[in-house]
Computed example of a mutant assay.
Amino acid sequence: MIPAAFDYVAPTTVADALAALAEGGDEAKVLAGGQSLLPILRMRLNAPETVIDLGKIEELRGISEDGDTLVIGAMTTYADLLASDLVTEHAALLRAAIAEVADPQIRHRGTIGGALVHADPAGDVGAPVLALDADLVITGPGGERTVAASDFFEDLFTTAVGEDELLTSIRIPKHTGWGAAYEKFVRVAHQWSIVAVAATVKVADGQIAEAKIGLTNMGSTPLRAASVEAALAGGSTDAAAVAAASASAADGTNPPSDLNGDADYRKHLATVLTRRAVLAAVGS
């Protein structure tokens, strides 16, 4: 299907993009990598009057260090993240999850910021960003504001980014030396996650000093498995101890029921994948 006609704007600065967004109002849509918006336009599920393409704004791309923090521009592609030594060293969990996103074509076009703002609970970026305790920088007419990942995801396809704002960067505390793993369950390759678990673990003196666990597609937003994190802290790295701690992974979740599985099936998967992810993270 062919999209409805729209005006196209390609600003080269954040300021110009915000101005275009203000001018377009409710009838404007922002285009990042296009992996979510373009199919919606083609199916005419949305017919904006103006599409604002962020692809020419260089200040929104790139990966850098700011002391103990990794700073990632919102328009940085998955492929650039996978190729980054900084991400590999300081945010291994993010790299592990992005490696599972779709296929190379998608990873060369899709952007981390676009995925985060789209906020699909089955997407592979939200859970690791949440688990890594990231801060998200949002820019609007009043300037910049920073929102913790725990407050960024508000509901299904809904985030803290206002209609007149843009997500401009993601700030991730360095997790240097932490093991990491992303366990994703799908029936068909390149499918959205039926359930996935993002785990990053710090091991010291043969014990788990700290663990952070994010859950994908276990509710209307990415979730933290707080009870598992608490049970793992200070515990053994052996399989039995990890399995016992992972048994509560589905506590407090509200997964969907659909053709891929009902809620109880997903809750069972969450415990299995959490155990696998933690053991893999410990081993890495």
Rank of each mutant, 00 (worst) to 15 (best):
P3S: 01
A4P: 00
F6H: 06
A10K: 00
L18V: 01
G24S: 04
G25M: 06
A28L: 00
V30M: 02
L41F: 11
L41A: 13
R44T: 15
N46T: 15
E49N: 15
K56P: 05
E59M: 09
I63D: 11
E65Y: 04
G67N: 03
D68F: 01
D68T: 11
G73E: 01
A79K: 10
L94K: 15
A102D: 12
A115C: 13
A115M: 12
A115W: 03
L116T: 08
D120I: 00
P121I: 05
V125D: 07
V125P: 13
A131H: 04
L136H: 11
I138E: 10
G143H: 00
E144H: 02
D151S: 11
E165V: 01
W178K: 07
H190F: 14
I194M: 05
V197N: 02
A198S: 09
K202V: 07
A204Q: 13
D205A: 13
D205M: 06
Q207I: 13
I208H: 05
M218R: 02
S220K: 08
A225Q: 06
A226S: 11
A226Y: 04
S227E: 13
S236A: 11
V242G: 00
A244I: 06
A245S: 07
S246E: 05
A249I: 08
D251N: 09
N254S: 14
P255M: 06
P255R: 02
D258T: 04
L259I: 12
N260S: 07
Y265L: 11
K267L: 12
A270V: 12
T271L: 07
R276D: 07
A281L: 01
G283A: 15
